[in-house]
Design a protein around this nucleic acid. Structure first.
Length: 222
DNA sequence: ACTCAGGGCAAGGCCTAGGT
DNA sequence: ACCTAGGCCTTGCCCTGAGT
């Protein structure tokens, strides 16, 4: 291999040929030398990018000045988990889309039987019309609906009412049947979305190693 | 299909600071 | 003085996208 004929200049930090071979470099050797040098520089830039982002993380989490890299990452992970937990707690009773897909159905009586149903999933263009069609097919009347979005996530909450009076629906079995039916309807809309890959941002790409810059960091060298 | 360049990852070597 | 952990550097291997 060419690498055995190369050595590092301690002062300049540059790759050099072995002294005896300098001056006898062929074209292919010179190309390999240039490639090795450029790879070495690229690798250095990569390390600089990583270290710049680690420095940014260090600035975001308290008491990490003296931490080694692995401990720093562990501290950041635990901090992010803590923040996510707090955020979840803070928006418990608010209509805020969460990270996990979810369908919920609850029942309550307000003179007649009501269902409070919600669906939380990734937004896709046809989602709202699919929900509309699905709910129209149910033997229920839409009382209200509320939508909120966060990034690519959407949460839609519906209140549906049964026109019959309370006595007509005293049968717990019938209520359960309707509840299941609503749940099933919303779940099928949700699953339709997760089946189409173009709207699955959470999907990982194995062996995909292209660099993606998520944000510009002022401390970054890239 | 093949080649090439660019980039990511991991192994191994070297250096240094801190502990014993 | 010796050991060890952590960090940096070089290098080989591999993957991917672009060009031919």
């Amino acid at each position: 291999m060419v690498s055995q004929a190369l050595m590092l200049d301690a002062e300049e930090g540059e790759l050099l040929k072995e002294p005896a071979r300098i001056g006898k470099m062929g074209i292919s050797e010179a190309k390999a030398f240039a490639a090795l040098k450029s790879h070495s520089e690229a690798e250095r830039r990569r390390r600089e990018r990583i270290n710049a982002h680690l420095a940014t993380l260090r600035g975001l989490v308290p008491c990490t000045e003296k931490m080694d890299k692995a401990t720093l990452l562990a501290a950041v992970i635990s901090q992010v988990k803590e923040l996510k937990k707090n955020a979840l707690e803070a928006c418990k009773d608010l209509l805020v889309p969460m990270d996990d897909d979810e369908v919920k159905v609850e029942t309550y009586f307000d003179r007649t039987l009501h269902f409070k149903a919600s669906i939380c999933c990734d937004y896709r263009p046809e989602l709202l019309s699919e929900l509309q069609n699905a709910i129209d097919a149910l033997p229920l009347k839409m009382v209200s609906t509320e939508i909120s979005t966060l990034g690519s996530r959407l949460k839609n909450e519906f209140v549906l009412a049964d026109r019959r009076n309370k006595n007509a629906l005293d049968d717990a079995g019938a209520i359960q049947l309707l509840t299941n039916s609503i749940h099933q309807t919303l779940t099928s809309v949700l699953e339709k979305g997760s089946a189409s890959p173009e709207y699955s941002p959470g999907t990982t790409l194995p062996n995909k190693r292209r660099r993606v810059t998520f944000f510009d960091s002022s401390s970054s060298s890239s």
